[in-house]
């Protein structure tokens, strides 16, 4: 298990954060995801097998961009 902090750009309302949470939680191996629109960040708890790339893709799928992914 690991915890990853994503810095996300392009969010500007509550439904944005919801979309990202929905999209990222569908990635297999992701245990929990909490996106904070106000701080432009998302905290993802996931299996070690999940790559940053997987998360970036999921965020992009919802229409937003990951600026940075770092391990907590």
């Amino acid at each position: 298990m690991k915890k990853i902090k994503l810095t996300i750009s392009g969010m500007h309302c509550g439904s944005c954060a919801g979309n990202i949470e929905r999209s990222v939680s569908k990635v297999s191996g992701v245990k929990s995801v909490s996106v904070r629109m106000m701080t432009n960040t998302g905290i993802v708890e996931c299996e070690d097998s999940v790559s940053d790339e997987d998360l970036k893709k999921a965020v992009a799928k919802a229409g937003y961009k990951v600026m940075k992914a770092e391990k907590e």
């Binding site: 500007h12 309302c13 439904s15 229409g63």
Partner: peptide, 11 residues
């Protein structure tokens, strides 16, 4: 994009 991914937003 929302119309084919079903991730709708304000946009």
């Amino acid at each position: 994009r929302g119309f084919y991914t079903f991730y709708f937003s304000m946009d």
